[in-house]
């Protein structure tokens, strides 16, 4: 599904002395089945924009549409439902839940759907197998290396089979070799028909041939190329 942003603005602490406009008017179309990279230095507003696209927060003004559906203005319940079915998230610090096993972490997004346990476990193992993690399934996540944790985060993002994958600075905690490996996995996902949106200021990501489009941001605005 096509995502379209029209004149999106986002303010933090609005009306207070420390009011700050993180996004100051962004209009953008994100193509389906493509890998798009939001590039920019820290504080440029790329994570804020990403979180609004992924229904994790709402814009202060402007319109976001997903296909025919207008996202901005939907109540929280509907946003959660869209988030659950449409987007899979990979966070900068992976955000795996400590103390739980790899398998449980992967299955976590599917718990509220009340799926059949056997089917869910089978799906989780299929993903873990695909990303070479089967042997780690029962291990607690704190035993994993950076690259393994990253792959577990990808599995978790894919468990509900979303159309779009959103990755925020996915290579920030990885060395060059693992970063390149990660881009290889992204390429694989694109080929399987997923739309991928990445924020990064890592050249391994935005210079990668896997990325179809690079959008540069600075001070809450798009930088025209």
């Amino acid at each position: 599904m096509l995502i379209e942003l029209t004149d999106i603005k986002k303010a933090f602490n609005q009306g207070k002395p420390n009011e700050f406009w993180a996004i100051r008017g962004v209009s953008l179309r994100i193509e389906q089945h493509k890998v798009t990279c939001l590039k920019g230095s820290s504080g440029s507003g790329k994570t804020t924009l990403l979180s609004m696209i992924g229904c994790l927060s709402r814009p202060t003004s402007g319109r976001i549409t997903l296909g025919e559906r207008r996202l901005s203005g939907l109540p929280e319940r509907f946003l959660t439902d869209i988030r659950r079915h449409t987007f899979g998230f990979i966070f900068q610090k992976f955000n795996l839940i400590q103390g739980m096993s790899v398998l449980e972490n992967v299955m976590l997004p599917a718990y509220p759907l009340g799926l059949n346990y056997t089917r869910l476990t089978k799906d989780a193992y299929r993903l873990l197998d695909h990303f070479n993690l089967t042997s780690k399934a029962e291990n607690p996540v704190e035993w994993l290396s950076g690259g393994e944790a990253q792959r577990v985060a990808i599995c978790r993002a894919l468990i509900n089979d979303p159309e779009m994958l959103i990755a925020d600075e996915p290579t920030a905690n990885l060395d060059t070799r693992l970063s390149e490996e990660f881009m290889g996995l992204i390429d694989e996902l694109r080929r399987s028909g997923k739309t991928v949106l990445i924020t990064s200021h890592d050249p391994v990501v935005f210079d990668s041939p896997v990325v179809d489009r690079v959008i540069e941001m600075c001070d809450g605005l798009l930088v025209e190329r």
């Binding site: 994790l56 929280e76 319940r77 959660t80 988030r83 659950r84 998230f89 966070f91 955000n95 839940i97 400590q98 976590l108 997004p109 718990y111 509220p112 978790r156 509900n160």
Partner: peptide
Amino acid sequence: AEEKREIGILKAVGWETAD
């Protein structure tokens, strides 16, 4: 802080406030 972070993660991966 850990519990708050966990709640944030759960919501981000698709759990509703009610869940």
